[in-house]
């Protein structure tokens, strides 16, 4: 039996996160949700996910700071990251931080998130 792909979702909007979790779980993924970067780092440290979906505007510590933190360790550096944000970000500028895809929260359909996960998890 293969284990479900583990996703760490870092999103501070509870209602939005609930929708993303439901969408991803329906596709068979195992999803853990963190509201902020500190909570996410603890969760990632305890159970390394296969994919991280990250909002960048987070309370206290931004998603960019979390990206830096992830790059500091060998085991977290290799985890593919999908940025899901309504902030305009150029993939070329963040690719060096392990970001593989950017999903524009303002225009995305839930299926776009699933497609992004499938693409980076290959």
């Amino acid at each position: 039996m293969t284990h479900a792909l583990a996703i760490e979702l870092v999103e501070d909007d509870t209602l939005l996160a609930r929708q993303f979790v439901t969408t991803l779980q329906r596709e068979g993924y195992s999803v853990h949700h963190s509201h902020h970067a500190k909570e996410a780092m603890i969760a990632i440290d305890e159970n390394l996910p296969d994919v991280i979906i990250l909002d960048v505007l987070l309370p206290a510590t931004t998603g960019f700071a979390l990206l830096h933190e992830l790059q500091s360790y060998d085991d977290t550096r290799v985890i593919p990251v999908i940025i899901c944000s309504s902030v305009a970000i150029d993939l070329k500028e963040v690719a060096i931080y392990g970001v593989k895809r950017i999903v524009d929260k303002a225009t995305m359909h839930p299926n776009d998130l699933v497609a992004a996960v499938r693409a980076v998890a290959l």
Partner: peptide
């Protein structure tokens, strides 16, 4: 104003989902 619009959009997508 963007944040509530983003959320409303996702909620409507979900409400249209037969599942």
């Amino acid at each position: 104003l963007k944040s509530p619009l983003v959320l409303i959009r996702q909620l409507i997508f979900a409400a249209q989902d037969d599942r």
